[in-house]
Design a protein around this nucleic acid. Sequence first.
DNA 1: CGAGAAATTGAAAAGATTCAACTCTCGTGG
DNA 2: CCACGAGAGTTGAATCTTTTCAATTTCTCG
Lengths: 230, 230
Amino acid sequence: MLKVDPTLIKDLKAFSGLEMAELELMLGEAQSSYFAKGDAFFREGERATRFFVLLDGYLQVVRTTENGEQVIMRHFAPGEVFGIAPALQRETYPANAIAVADCVALHWPNKCWEDFASRVPRFLKNAHGAVGERLNASQDRIIEMATEQVERRVARAVVRLVNQAGKKTEHGIRIDIPVSRQDIAEMTGTTLHTVSRIFSAWASLGLVEVGRQKIEVLSAHKLVTIAEGH
Amino acid sequence: MLKVDPTLIKDLKAFSGLEMAELELMLGEAQSSYFAKGDAFFREGERATRFFVLLDGYLQVVRTTENGEQVIMRHFAPGEVFGIAPALQRETYPANAIAVADCVALHWPNKCWEDFASRVPRFLKNAHGAVGERLNASQDRIIEMATEQVERRVARAVVRLVNQAGKKTEHGIRIDIPVSRQDIAEMTGTTLHTVSRIFSAWASLGLVEVGRQKIEVLSAHKLVTIAEGH
DNA sequence: CGAGAAATTGAAAAGATTCAACTCTCGTGG
DNA sequence: CCACGAGAGTTGAATCTTTTCAATTTCTCG
């Protein structure tokens, strides 16, 4: 349980447009927790009791099929709300939320949701906006899976990772979280073998530099060309 | 513009749990319109000005890719809200909504949304619940596309159609809207040829009876077996 | 009855997966 | 400090699924 100052969080997406007084009200009810890499914020099917805002770190939302395959649904960066079952009238969490880097998150018991509905309406609006974006992103991904072949899907996944977790380096942009071939496969609906082959091909074109759980993009432009197919 | 009686709509999903007075209030602000088969309720990217509840008929939500391919995102049956951009802080409609049978829908200008927030809160809750279900359905479909092969995806699509538009017949269940091989292909991310081959195979197993834009399921049980893989 | 849309089907080709063997990297513990 | 073992990655070959191309056929509506 850490102390959090309103000025530190006022620019986060989840809190955008909130008054200082509203932030303080929300912080007054909040708990903040540390989650080590690999920890679960919550698990699929678990009774939803709280909702979260990620302050620092990085997390994955993952669903598992009956036969044990994993599908990475999306990633969250600092500033995003997640686990907002009450916004959707849900009783349970729909997926596993796993820290892929050490994380700090604020969270509130669900009863605060109704509270904030009247006292911090802007927060709810932001959250509903986030839901809309996610629904849209899901649909984009369905279209992608339905119409694009694997190399392009992989390129898009890498572009998204670069946008969400890219750090400039000497020669390009490095993805600042450990991502394995298997992870990319679970993000794109393919196998780690196919991802490995694609990466090898890209590397020999000088497009990326890859290593153990490491991806560095040397030519973002060419990668986008593959992703978007111009 | 048709007159609509509150008792006719009180059992629809979108209005579940509403008081008679609330229904009357909503109907007072509503307009009802007829949409012929093939008409668009709204189009992708269009400025969102109103939200809808389908009273009768059947509609498809379709998105088109840059290179002209269509993907059928979902179908709506009577009783469902759609085009609820204000619930998601959206300015535009995210997709095309096309009547696949003659339809009647209620609709309201967006400004009513804020109104209903305070005066018919239950309606908003229902709508948010619907959004949650749709987000979930989208994610299920992503998983399906990522992990299942075509035959199973087609089987699932047919099962969904049966659930949403199935009519009992002498020997089985007929899908009560015209659905072409191409339509199934756009629902499952494959080609009409592959769908045709799958249907032919199923037909020769006595599982379905298919024809021009016609699907009749003779053994729902076996179809579910293919869909779920038990 | 004719025209056009919808559907079927074979054959070839492409794309991706599966299987299997092997290599590399990194952290740990002797 | 080095060796070793496990996890991560690579790559060839065979195989499988699905698509693509092309030629026909069937159906339905006007």
